[in-house]
Every structure is written in structure tokens, then in C-alpha cells.
Design a protein around this nucleic acid. Structure first.
Length: 127
RNA sequence: CCAGACGGCCGGGCAGCCGCUGGUGGCAGGCUUGCCUGUCGCUGGAGGAAAGUCCGGGCUCCAUGGAAACAGGGCGGCGGGUAACGCCCGCCCGGCGAGAGCCGAGGGAAAGUGCCACAGAGAGCAGACCGCCAGCCGCUUGCGGCUGGUAAGGGUGAAAGGGUGGGGUAAGAGCCCACCGCGGGGGCGGUAACGUCCCUGGCAUGGUAAACCCCGCCCGGAGCAAGACCGAGUAGGGGGCGCGCAUGGGCCGUUUCCAGCCUGCGCCCCGGGUGUGUCGCGUGAGGGCUCCCGCGAGGGAGCUCCCAGAGGAAUGGUUGCCGAUCCCAGCAAUGGGGGAACAGAACCCGGCUUACAGGCCGUCUGGUCAU
């Protein structure tokens, strides 16, 4: 499959609570190492939004920090290549995120992003 | 060397690649001339507990200042340290330990009130169940009954109205005596808590004050979502109702007094920013080294360093090597496995408390061996 736009889209961090709530109303993909939510913003701009969350269930503050940092590091590698321009993504840490094998985490994120991209391009992401 | 006590310190290391954030420098660009953007360097970047948010402060805002009383809260051997403390140091007293040491909310219970279950005859103006003793009566002698004395013994209890020993006595009892304890007075040592000695009294004073309480000392409230700045803007404006036009009313726990200030007061409704940015926000009761004073907590002087400042929240992700206890095998040398505890700054300090794999250093105690 030949990628038409080789220029990677700019990635912007989601910062306020309403942005997270908006994405929660969109699509969701669950893997062993993480959960990804995604939703097309519906505006004209082409940047990709990214946000990271770890709930109290993930563990204490150290475990939550580690899980969120691993998600950020993985997203930095994968999201510019696999993310859909104009969509916002929220990466949610699970119990295994901090301890899972690094390559497995990358594989989980890649497969989730690919299937989300397929759904988004079909137009069901705007909801 | 083994066992133990106390104090202090550390709490994974190195390298490669790719990132984040603060500071700083070069270059380029922009313009409102001191900032912004891009890029390339250099450099700082979690803890001993960053935690719990339990105390004490700084700082900020609110409150007109002072005094007294009351209310509420806290503290409590003595002396010292400190900005301060409920913290720390030294000492005293009591308890525990063979010892090094450890533990103690450690003022007042003969001001008052409350409480002290069960058991027990009796539990706070004490108390005769058994026993002991005396007298009288009955009777088969040691037995039984009645009356009285007695707190030495038994029994109950967490605790039985000073303890031990002797005298004394019908049996006993601070009834008397010695020592201890307790109360009062005095001498000496100590800044003091207290210690010690002498005289004296009489055995009257159970425990509980993290029960009320009494005594002494201390204490305004809220917190960085404090608070400040920019934007037209945080303060005022308009309306209604009630009371009032003064010897009134208000000024932050309450009341009173003194001084001062303000001027209608109270309630309700309407309209007027709704959301970021910047500051606060890292030079501080600051760290390191040396010297001096002090038993110590700590204090002083000199030199030197700048040492995290995020904001859905940076301080990392990943790979390789080395790796402590630990687990398995083995008498051992050793081989294999495994791969670091508790835990993440959010205005900042001083403490306390709690969590924590493992390691290092020093001082001391007891034991063992050698000399």
C-alpha cells in the first residue's frame, strides 16, 4: 500500500480535560499493554493530537509515571507514521504497561493504531 | 572471632542510540531594541524518606491598636539549643537488663466530684467467713452453744487501711522499740530537677488526672486553588423592602475598658470578566571545606559554590556489559539461575511518624582464643 502523503503530520499534546472527554466518545481499541481511544476532530487542521492517562488502578505514582513515559516513548516512534491527520488519540495505561516487554508494547500499539486508522478512514470516527 | 548495644553514612554502576525540560552561548530571521522564532553547542535536572499531612515557622491575604476577664485548644521533671516547636541535647528521678544500654504525657490525688466490674464477711465515715483468745452454760475428756475481745494467720481479690524484725499480750494491735517508707523542720552539695545528713511527728495519706478538674506556661483566622499584574474592568452602579436620622451604628472568638477611625444600616433582586497568560517560583533559618568555642544539641569566623523548577505535570525510553544479597546443587573450591527494597518534587524551610532488599564505617558491652 503506497502512502500518498509522505510528510509526517505535526503531533500536538492534549492538555485540558474537555479534549480528553471528547476523545472518550470516539473509537476504542484494547490490547494487553494499552488501550487507545481515537476520534476525528472534524475541523480543517491536520495535526494529530495525543494524550496520555494512567488511572489509580495502574499502581502507585512510580508505576503510573513509568507506564505513561513508556507510552509517550512508543507513541513518539509510531504515531507520526500511523496516526490519521486531523484525529485526536488518547493512550491509556493498563496494569501491564509498566512491566510488559518493550517490543510487545510496540507491537500492541502498532496493531491498535492500524485498525483505528482503518475505521477512521471509513468515516465512522466522527460519530 | 562470636553474640549484642548505640551513632553516622550509602541505598545499583558504566557505555551507546533516541528524547523531555530549566539555564546559558553562537548563528540566522522577525520586529514594537529586548524580546520572540528556528537551528547548533555547552550545562543543571527527584528522595532519605520526595510519603503521611501530625506539629513548628517563613511568606501571602483578611482583621484599627492596647489591656483585662472569659471561652476554646495545646503543652507539662530540671537546665540548655533554636526563628520556633509537641523537636533536639545534657542532667535528675522511677522501671527493666549480667552489661553496653533501653523505656517513661515524668506537675497536683491530706480543693472537690465521679469511677473501681467479678469474687469476697468487708473496697474508703473499713471489715469478724474460717481461725485465735477470754468468760459463762450444756456435756462423755479433747465437743457444742452463747456473749465479748482480736486484723498476727487462712481464704477472696488488681488492691484488705504502712513493710520487716523484736518486745508486749489472754490472744492481738504503732500498743511500744529499731530500721525502711511517709509527713514537717533544718544543715550541706548542686543554676535547678534532685541528692545527702540531722532533728522531729505519728502511722492519719488506696488507685485513677491520655475522667471532670486545679496550677503554671503558650496560642487571631485562612492558605500558593494564598495572593499580585495585564486586558474597559473585582470595584462600584441601579432598583425594591424594612428600620433609622443619633447620647445611634460599625471596626473578625465573646464581653468590658481606654485610644483612634469610619458613617445611614440590614436583607433581596438586576446588570457587569467566566478563561487563559505573566509574576509569585528558586540566594535560602542554603550547601561544602578549614579553624575556634561548647560534654552535646549547637554557635561564631574565614574561604568557596549556585545546586530541579514541571504545569494532563520534564527529570526519561531502549540496548549492551558488569553486577550485591537471594534461590538451587555441592563437605568445599565452585557451577547454574535471577537481575535491585520502599518509593516520584508541585511555595519553601525545621521536626515527628510511617515504609524500606541490602551494604559500609565508628564507638561501646559480654564471651572465647592467643600473647
Amino acid at each position: 500500500m503506497a502512502r500518498t502523503d509522505e510528510s509526517k503530520a505535526e503531533v500536538v499534546r492534549l492538555t485540558v480535560r474537555p479534549q480528553f472527554l471528547f476523545v472518550r466518545g470516539g473509537l476504542s481499541e484494547r490490547r494487553k499493554g494499552l488501550v487507545i481511544q481515537a476520534r476525528l476532530r472534524g475541523d480543517d487542521r491536520l495535526h494529530i493530537g495525543e494524550g496520555f492517562t494512567a488511572t489509580k488502578k495502574t499502581g502507585n505514582a512510580v508505576k503510573r509515571n513509568r507506564a505513561r513515559r513508556r507510552l509517550k516513548a512508543a507513541a513518539r516512534e509510531l504515531l507520526p507514521r500511523l496516526g490519521v491527520p486531523g484525529a485526536d488519540y488518547v493512550f491509556i495505561a493498563r496494569m501491564d504497561t509498566a512491566g510488559i516487554d518493550w517490543q510487545r508494547l510496540l507491537d500492541d500499539m502498532e496493531s491498535a493504531l492500524i485498525s483505528l486508522a482503518a475505521s477512521l478512514r471509513q468515516g465512522s470516527g466522527t460519530a
